[in-house]
Simulated scan of single mutants.
Amino acid sequence: MNLGYRLAYRLGFTPWERAGRRTFSAQLAALLDGVAPPAAGAKALDLGCGTGDHSIQLGIRGWSVTAIDAVPLAIERARAKLPIAGADVRFVLGDVTNLPAYVDSGYTLAIDVGCFHGLSDDQRTAYGNGLGAVTEPGAQLLMFSFSPGHRGPLPRGASRGDVEQALGGWTVIGDDAMDTSEASGILAMAKPRFFRLVRD
């Protein structure tokens, strides 16, 4: 998927960025409202951050954010959005399947808005292992995912079982269908969900 994303950013075809801002940002914000406000210096991780809109929102909420993506142009555009008053955000070019090589540890919140659901099985396992290594017990993960399906070049999606298998040290505490009443046809047909997990 990485080559496809690189090409998409070069061509300016990034509908997931637009959907993230317009379609489900309110639902993600509501889920974040349910997370306890961060203590001073509390650390959050944005996995597959794209151009950083969600990372910046986390920073504005008071989190110290590290945001990672494998697409150089996405990270370049994300960095161009800083500085923003009140947002402590660091954008890192790196691989979510090898997190300890790119980020430090001690994170108590992670978000994934459309990254995991495009990974292969082996990549998902590596993602889960790395995420466990850099987060604290009790850390929370909010994950957006298409439901499983064959969609050509689009992400294959992930079921709750897929998430539980790859993140063995985490417990799913929420599995919520996304409100697609204002979504485009393709997004609505993908039956997206938000999973909420807590690290054991």
Rank of each mutant, 00 (worst) to 15 (best):
L3F: 09
R6C: 14
L7E: 12
L7H: 14
Y9H: 07
R10E: 15
R10L: 15
P15D: 09
P15G: 08
P15K: 11
P15Y: 05
E17S: 14
E17D: 15
A19R: 13
G20T: 10
F24P: 01
Q27F: 11
A29W: 10
A29N: 11
L31K: 13
L32M: 12
D33C: 13
G34K: 12
V35H: 00
A36S: 14
P38N: 09
G41P: 06
G41E: 04
A42G: 11
A42H: 03
K43S: 03
L45A: 09
L45V: 06
G48R: 04
G48F: 04
T51K: 06
G52R: 03
G52A: 11
S55C: 05
S55A: 15
I56W: 00
Q57E: 15
R61G: 00
G62M: 09
G62S: 12
S64T: 13
A67F: 00
I68Q: 01
A70D: 11
V71A: 02
A74I: 10
E76Y: 04
R77Q: 14
A78N: 04
K81I: 01
L82R: 01
P83W: 03
A85W: 03
D88M: 02
V89W: 01
F91H: 01
F91K: 01
V92M: 09
V92N: 06
T97F: 02
L99I: 08
L99F: 02
A101P: 03
V103C: 03
A110H: 02
I111F: 06
V113R: 15
G118K: 03
D121E: 15
Q123W: 05
R124N: 08
Y127H: 14
G128V: 05
T135Y: 04
E136D: 09
A139H: 08
L141I: 08
L141T: 00
L142M: 11
M143R: 00
S145E: 07
S145D: 10
P148T: 10
P148W: 04
G149C: 09
R151D: 06
R151M: 12
L154T: 03
L154G: 04
P155D: 07
R156S: 14
A158N: 04
S159W: 06
G161M: 10
G161C: 05
V163A: 08
E164K: 11
E164V: 10
Q165E: 13
Q165G: 07
G168K: 07
G168L: 06
W170L: 09
W170I: 10
G174E: 06
D176F: 11
A177C: 10
D179I: 12
D179K: 08
T180S: 12
S181E: 15
S181M: 05
A183C: 09
G185S: 14
G185M: 11
I186L: 14
A188F: 05
A190W: 00
A190V: 03
A190C: 15
P192W: 06
P192Q: 04
P192R: 05
L197A: 12
